[in-house]
Every structure is written in C-alpha cells, then in structure tokens.
C-alpha cells in the first residue's frame, strides 16, 4: 500500500511538471510563432524527416503486418460466420480508431524518441543549454518547439499511412484466401462504417499523441537536472511514462467513440 501510494504521488507530481512544461512549450510555440523562422523552420523540417520520413518504411511494414494478422483473419472469419456487415465497423474500430494511432506513436517513441532523450539530456548535462541561454536564445524555442512540431506532424501522417497499409495488406491476404470482394467494394464497406466525426477525432487523437510524446521526451531530456550517467534511467522512464500516458489518453477517447 505504501509503495502504491508513493508510486501514485510520484506519478501525480510528474504529471503536474510535464503539464506545466507542455504549457510553457505550447505558449512559446504561439508567442514565438514567427520568430527566427530561418533557424526554426529547417530544424522542424529536420525533425519531420527524422521522426516521419525515416520512420515511414517501418510504419508501412508494421501496418502490413497488422493487416495480415488482424484484418485478413478478421475479414475471413466474418465471411465464414456470415457476418460481413460487421466487417466495416470492426475494421474502423480496431484499426482506424485504436491500433493505428497508438502503434504509430509507439514506433516514433521507440525509433526516434529514445535517441532524442539522449540528445537533449547530453546537451543539458554538458552545459549546451546554458550556452544557448547565454546567447539570448530561448532553449524551449530552439530545442523543444522543432521537436514538438516534428513529432506531432509525423505521428499524424504516419497514422494515415499505417491505416492504409493495414487495410491494403489485409484485403490482399483475405482476397488470396478466398474473399469474393472487389477492392473498391471492400474500401466502400470501410468508408461506409466511418462517420464524419471519425476524421476530427482521429486528427485530435493523433495530435494529442504527438504533443504528449514530444513533451514527455523533451521534459525528461531537458527539465530534470541530469548528469550523463542518469541518461539511461531518463530514457527508460520516458518510454514507460509515454506508454502509460498514451494508453490513458486512448481510454479517454473511449466514451466518445461509444457514443457514436
């Protein structure tokens, strides 16, 4: 009980700090939106390439694996039990609303996020952050805002690619195993199951995942006083906290989806 209480208090304290850090970063993004664009824009583009373009192949591969394992089998099962009318709602619920956004965020976290914690933590530990401040450069604007933009844009776009690759791969597998449905007909079934609210909700969910992932990464890299030997622990903590936070956010969307 004592341990659970300690853990809960620690989680609350961290949430409060990360929340404050997020507000500062979002405030900086808004108030310094047009400041030094020739320095900040290339850095944001670099982050989009790092967290988005470079991660695209693995996201497509995972999307196809998801398609083969989940979509292909589910579709065939529904055909076997004569419940094809459930195909659309099931695919939308499982792939579009739940798995794709969460998996895209987790891939970005694993592939780029851990490296970003080390990069920021090293900058903090060797005094590069103080050097920026001494030059009159706001470290949040220079180091955090490009990551916030880059990670968020990447997670939003990668989710779309993951949904598409999962559905395409799922259809191909189901087709070769005897699904008698034309591709257009299959995608029409999925499209019919989508309501208009799904689009803003998906955009909102992926945006929240992007902001959350980038902020937890930047917080653990920058805000906690770090020594080089603490970097490993900070990285592990980042992964665990981002995973938990993403699942909690995912759960918050559940009542909204149930009302649809």
């Amino acid at each position: 009980m004592g341990l659970a209480g300690h853990w809960a208090l620690d989680a609350l304290r961290s949430s409060r700090r990360i929340g404050a850090f997020t507000l500062i970063a979002l405030g900086t993004l808004v108030t310094k939106f047009g400041a030094s664009p020739r320095v900040i824009r290339p850095r944001a583009q670099e982050e989009i390439v790092r967290a988005g373009v470079n991660v695209l192949p693995i996201v497509c591969f995972l999307g196809m694996a998801l398609g083969v394992v989940i979509v292909g089998q589910t579709v065939l099962l529904l055909v076997q039990v004569g419940q094809t009318k459930l195909m659309g709602p099931l695919l939308v619920t499982v792939v579009v609303r739940e798995l794709a956004p969460l998996t895209a965020a987790m891939v970005v976290l694993a592939r780029v996020g851990t490296a970003a914690v080390t990069e920021l933590g090293t900058a903090r530990a060797v005094g590069e952050v103080e050097a920026l401040e001494a030059l009159g450069i706001d470290p949040i604007h220079y180091l955090v805002v490009p990551k916030l933009i880059g990670f968020t844009v990447s997670i939003v776009c990668l989710t779309v690619y993951m949904i598409l690759s999962a559905l395409v791969a799922g259809y191909v597998v189901a087709f070769f195993r005897g699904l008698s449905m034309e591709p257009l007909e299959f995608f029409q079934v999925v499209a019919d199951a989508l309501s208009w609210v799904d689009f803003p909700l998906l955009a909102l969910k992926t945006l929240v995942f992007g902001v959350l992932t980038s902020m937890i990464i930047c917080y653990h890299g920058l805000a906690d006083p770090l020594r080089l030997e603490d970097l490993g622990r900070a990285t592990t903590r980042t992964v665990a906290r981002t995973l938990i936070a993403s699942l909690l956010v995912d759960a918050l969307f559940l009542p909204v989806y149930l009302l649809l």
């Binding site: 030094s36 664009p37 020739r38 320095v39 030059l135 009159g136 220079y142």
Partner: peptide, 13 residues
Amino acid sequence: LPLCYHGNKSLEE
C-alpha cells in the same frame, strides 16, 4: 547560430 537566430538569417545569408 546567434547571428542567424537573432537576425533571422539562413546559414547562406
């Protein structure tokens, strides 16, 4: 860096 950041210049400029 300080020149580019405060003067809004690219590295080429």
